[in-house]
Structure formats: structure tokens, C-alpha cells
């Protein structure tokens, strides 16, 4: 075990623990947009900068391991100023759409902007995607993408690559023009995306949205949420059931412990828990490339013959 102080609090953590987790153990939360304990650490958003006694300049807490005797300061004026400016840079390139954004209430950018008192500004500089929030990829019945809201934290890319056979999303372009691309910059429909929604649950902002939830107009902050376990396979991925007024929707929950998430599991959870579930779609290879097609529930869940046999047997 390693002993260090974070904001004057003494904390003991196992060797190799990064400073975000060490701070969490001390009850201190360090803001971070690109960090996810289940994913490779990249240190890209730079929001988790902290000062450490004896270090010449701030370092990112996610990429720094706790060391014996380290004295970490997470809320100095210097790092608060840097965080504010980083948030301002992100807001300057983000549409002012919190009122109608599906992610409102769950958005990390919204949350940190509130905590640090950073606001949207009117300016005539360049913006990613378009000036206004607009879904740029509506080809998938399950996932909506809005490039103008993307903060390029890369969580979607890393969570997609966590299952090597998926690895659909990647970075494309350079510098300010960097964006997330599916395969060779295709739509989600035309790409090899399997609609598992790992990226949607990883996205800290409203750049990747669960379309079926959005179409029911249910936001998490106005809903009652319960967690259910998928029975489709042994992994037992978790789904959330959101109940708001009359609507009840099912959406995937961030996977942990190597769980993969899959579309079949999601549809099974929907048919089991959702009120008035929406039509299922499956991706098919056609002459015109990959296309989403409406299918029956028994087809979607691969139960076509099984259901027929059950019916026959029970008659």
C-alpha cells in the first residue's frame, strides 16, 4: 500500500493506483471527461490536471500513479484556471442546446461547466460540424450521432476497440478537423457497427444518443430508473428501465467486468420491460451494402422456429 495526501487528506491506496482513483478513495472527485476506469487511459481531455509538490507543472491525475509521500492538490487556483479555460474551449466549440439535448442532466460537460461557472459565448470563430446541434448520422435506428457536440474524448473509440472484432470507430482527420469515423468514414448503417451501443453509454456528452430512448422523449433526470440484468447469455449485461409518466423505455447500461453488450440482449430486455416497444431492426447485407430492415420480434431475437415449435407443441 502507498500512502499519500490529497488536498491534505491522508489516503492509502494499492501501488499502481492512479490519482483519480486515489482521490476517489479519499472522497474527492477530480473532473475528467476522457477517463473511464474500464478503458485505456489516454490523458486527452486534460481536465484532471492537478498540482503535486515538487513537480514543475500540473500533471494529469489519470496518467499519474500514486507514489509514497506524494502531496497532491486538486483545487489550486492554477488548476482551476486551467480547467475553466479548457471547459471554455470545449464550450466555444459546442452548440448551446442543453434545453433540448437528450443528454441533459447526464452530460459531464454540462455538469463541469455548471461547477466551474463557464458559460456559452457568442463568437464567429470556427465550429465543429455545424453551428447548431444537428444529428449528422441518422442512419441507425438505435444510435444517433451529432458531430457538433463531440468533444473528442475518444471514449467511444476505446470502448468499441475493447472488443477487437468490433473496432468500428476511430479518429479521422487532424487537429481542429479531427472527428470520429465509423470504418472508412461511413454511416453507422453502412459500417460494420453491430449496434451494441457501448459507445452510446460511454459518451459523456450528447454526441452519441440512444435513438429509441430519444424517440420516447424520456430523459434520465425526470425518470425513475431501475436496473435489470439481461438473461440472453452468461455475461449478464445490465440494462436500465426508465419510467417517466406513461412512458417506459429500456436502454443499455455501461458494461463492466468485460461484459460486451449486444443488440440481441438489448431487444430482449426491451420486449420484456419496455412499455409499447418500438419495432426492431436488423442489419442485412444487400446489393446496396448494409441496410437496416424492419423485422418481427421473433426474427429479431432469433426465435422464429422456436416460437413455431412451441406453438405447435402447446396446441
Amino acid at each position: 500500500m502507498i500512502q499519500l495526501t490529497i488536498d491534505q487528506k491522508t489516503v492509502r491506496v494499492p501501488a499502481g493506483t492512479n490519482l483519480i482513483e486515489a482521490a476517489r478513495a479519499a472522497g474527492i472527485e477530480i473532473p475528467a471527461l476522457c477517463y473511464d476506469p474500464g478503458l485505456e487511459v489516454v490523458g486527452a481531455c486534460r481536465l484532471c490536471l492537478v498540482e503535486i509538490d515538487g513537480f514543475p507543472k500540473p500533471v494529469t491525475a489519470c496518467t499519474t500513479s500514486a507514489a509514497e509521500g506524494m502531496a497532491v492538490h486538486t483545487m489550486t487556483p492554477a488548476v482551476r484556471r486551467l480547467r475553466r479555460e479548457i471547459l471554455q474551449l470545449l464550450l466555444d466549440n459546442h452548440p448551446n442546446d442543453c434545453l433540448t439535448c437528450q443528454q441533459a442532466g447526464e452530460c459531464y460537460l454540462q455538469r463541469y461547466a455548471y461547477e466551474y461557472g463557464v458559460t456559452f459565448r457568442v463568437h464567429d470563430g470556427a465550429r465543429r460540424g455545424s453551428e447548431h446541434a444537428r444529428f449528422t448520422d441518422t442512419s441507425s435506428p438505435y444510435i444517433l450521432r451529432d458531430e457538433s457536440k463531440c468533444i473528442l474524448c475518444g471514449k467511444c473509440v476505446r470502448t468499441c476497440a475493447a472488443l477487437p472484432e468490433r473496432s468500428v470507430l476511430s479518429f479521422a482527420g487532424r487537429g481542429f478537423m479531427t472527428k470520429i469515423a465509423a470504418d472508412l468514414d461511413q454511416t453507422l448503417e453502412a459500417s460494420t457497427c453491430v449496434s451494441c451501443s457501448r459507445c452510446v453509454v460511454a459518451c459523456p456528452v450528447g454526441a452519441l444518443i440512444d435513438r429509441r430512448q430519444r424517440e420516447k422523449r424520456v430523459r434520465a433526470f425526470s425518470a425513475e430508473t431501475t436496473t435489470v440484468k439481461c438473461k440472453q447469455c452468461d455475461y449478464g449485461c445490465e440494462f436500465e428501465v426508465l419510467q417517466a409518466n406513461e412512458a417506459r423505455v429500456v436502454r443499455p447500461k455501461a458494461p463492466s467486468g468485460g461484459r460486451p453488450l449486444c443488440l440481441t440482449g438489448r431487444l430482449r430486455a426491451e420486449i420484456e420491460y419496455a412499455g409499447d416497444p418500438k419495432t426492431p431492426y436488423l442489419k442485412r447485407e444487400t446489393d446496396k451494402g448494409r441496410k437496416f430492415e424492419r423485422v418481427t420480434w421473433s426474427e429479431a431475437l432469433g426465435l422464429g422456429q422456436v416460437l413455431q415449435r412451441i406453438q405447435e407443441e402447446e396446441e
Partner: peptide
């Protein structure tokens, strides 16, 4: 394009 301060 990786980190915010440089990209933006």
C-alpha cells in the same frame, strides 16, 4: 487533435 488545449 488528441488533447483539448492544443486542438481547440
Amino acid at each position: 487533435g488528441k488533447c483539448t488545449p492544443c486542438r481547440e
